[in-house]
Computed example of a mutant assay.
Amino acid sequence: MLLQLKNFKVSLAFLSVLLLLVLAACGDSEGTAQGEENDQPAESNQSDNDEDATEDPAEEEVAGNDWPEKINMGVIPAEDQTSASDRVNEFAEELATHLGIEVDVFLGTDYNAVIEAMRTENIDIAFFGPFAYVLASERSGAEVFSIGGKSEEEIYYTSAIIVPKDSDAESIADLEGKDFLFVDPASTSGHIFPRAKVIEDLGVTNDEVESVFGSVTFSGSHDASILAIVNGDADGAAIATDVMDAMLDQGVINEGDFKIIASSDPIPRGPDAYRSNLPEDLKEAIREFYYSYENERFFEERGINGFYPVEDSAFDVVRRTAEALGMSPEELLN
């Protein structure tokens, strides 16, 4: 009996050890499985993170987009500052909406102010007179892209020399010794081309032009010169016919208020140009806005029907005229 009990205790002990071994084995298996389950999400998360790092939508959205927070638009004073400001501010606001960035307007006091502002990158886009653009392309890296006109073929205008309606003058020669107005030293139609016309018609040299008239003054804008003639405050003036036509259309002046006694050869209209070092996609967006722009009031005031593409070569006639005068950019601007 004692022997049987002893054997039973040994068997029980053996079974206990065996049970512990089985439980331990099961525990390791479950631990391993649990560990594998814990590791799997970690691998999955890492893979997801890698994909996120590669395909981050925010990064794709700004990739290559180095646009400035705002751009500045410069305006040459071709007409009354107040009315031009109202019109251009409206235009700038619409451009800002199209681009999604702020657009501020810089009203230059003269041609040189806008050219210099672009050279120092204080303005990014500007409306220039034809010769002012030539200077800006040489000095300030201006790149022409748009020109206003009646159509893509009608992008030219002329310079005219006008006198008061009751003037006895019928030609430039009749203005010798009289008071004469140019617009601005760098104005294509308000100085460069009419100056060349004076030289051609009177057979004088460039240095003798001022001595032809009793006095020569720069009015600062085409509309100021036109109004001076209409009001009888000057004997003769050189003006742009597109500004004259716009003032006629608006009823500011009437055809009977003045007389035209001379006209120049066709001149390309004043173009729009931006800094050549602006981001290419920004320049493309600006072009898209101009070419698709529709605002009858704006076009009526500018005397155009729309904006059209234009190449730098269109202004070679302006360069040739300046060369014929033998005038340096510094002389034209001072």
Results as ranks from 00 to 15, higher is better:
Met1Tyr: 14
Leu2Glu: 06
Gln4Val: 07
Lys9Pro: 05
Leu12Glu: 13
Leu18Val: 08
Leu21Ile: 07
Leu21Ala: 06
Leu23Trp: 09
Ala25Leu: 15
Ala25Asp: 15
Asp28Val: 13
Asp28Arg: 15
Thr32Trp: 15
Gln34Cys: 12
Glu37Gln: 11
Glu43Ser: 08
Asn45Thr: 07
Gln46Leu: 09
Pro57Cys: 05
Pro57Val: 05
Glu60Pro: 09
Val62Gln: 13
Ala63Asn: 11
Asp66Met: 08
Lys70Arg: 12
Lys70Trp: 04
Met73Val: 14
Val75Tyr: 00
Gln81Trp: 15
Thr82Met: 11
Ala84Pro: 03
Ala84Gly: 11
Val88Gly: 06
Phe91Pro: 01
Leu99Val: 00
Leu99Pro: 00
Gly100Cys: 07
Val103His: 00
Val105His: 02
Leu107Gln: 14
Gly108Trp: 01
Thr109Cys: 10
Ala113Met: 09
Val114His: 12
Met118Asp: 10
Arg119Tyr: 15
Ile123Asn: 10
Ala126Gln: 11
Ala126Asn: 15
Phe127Arg: 14
Phe128Trp: 12
Val134Glu: 05
Leu135Ser: 08
Leu135Asp: 01
Arg139Gly: 00
Ile147Lys: 06
Gly149Asp: 03
Ser151Phe: 05
Ile155His: 02
Tyr157Phe: 13
Ala160Asn: 14
Ile162Asp: 01
Lys165His: 03
Lys165Ala: 03
Lys165Cys: 02
Asp168Ala: 13
Asp168Leu: 13
Glu170Asp: 14
Ile172Asn: 02
Ala173Met: 05
Asp174Ala: 10
Leu175Pro: 04
Lys178Trp: 00
Phe182Cys: 02
Pro185Asn: 08
Pro185Tyr: 04
Ala186Val: 10
Ser189His: 10
Arg195Asn: 08
Val198Arg: 01
Glu200Gly: 00
Val204Ala: 01
Asp207His: 09
Glu210Tyr: 10
Gly214Trp: 08
Ser215Gly: 08
Val216Gly: 10
Phe218Ala: 13
His222Met: 14
Asp223Leu: 02
Asp223Ala: 01
Ile226Val: 06
Leu227Trp: 05
Leu227Thr: 06
Val230Arg: 02
Asn231Tyr: 12
Asp233Lys: 09
Ala234Ile: 08
Gly236Asp: 03
Ile239Met: 11
Met244His: 09
Met247Asp: 04
Leu248Arg: 00
Gly251Tyr: 03
Val252Ile: 09
Ile253Thr: 04
Asn254Leu: 05
Lys259Leu: 14
Ile260Gly: 10
Ile261Gly: 06
Ala262Leu: 08
Ala262Arg: 00
Tyr274His: 11
Tyr274Thr: 02
Pro279Arg: 04
Pro279Met: 04
Glu280Lys: 00
Glu280Asn: 01
Asp281Cys: 03
Glu284His: 07
Tyr290Pro: 02
Tyr290Ser: 01
Tyr291Ala: 01
Ser292Val: 00
Ser292Pro: 01
Asn295Gly: 01
Phe299Trp: 05
Arg302Pro: 08
Arg302Lys: 15
Pro309Val: 03
Glu311Met: 12
Ala314Thr: 06
Ala324Thr: 11
Ser328Trp: 08
Pro329His: 12
Glu330Phe: 14
Glu330Gly: 12
Leu332Ile: 10
Leu332Met: 14
Leu332Trp: 13
Asn334Cys: 08
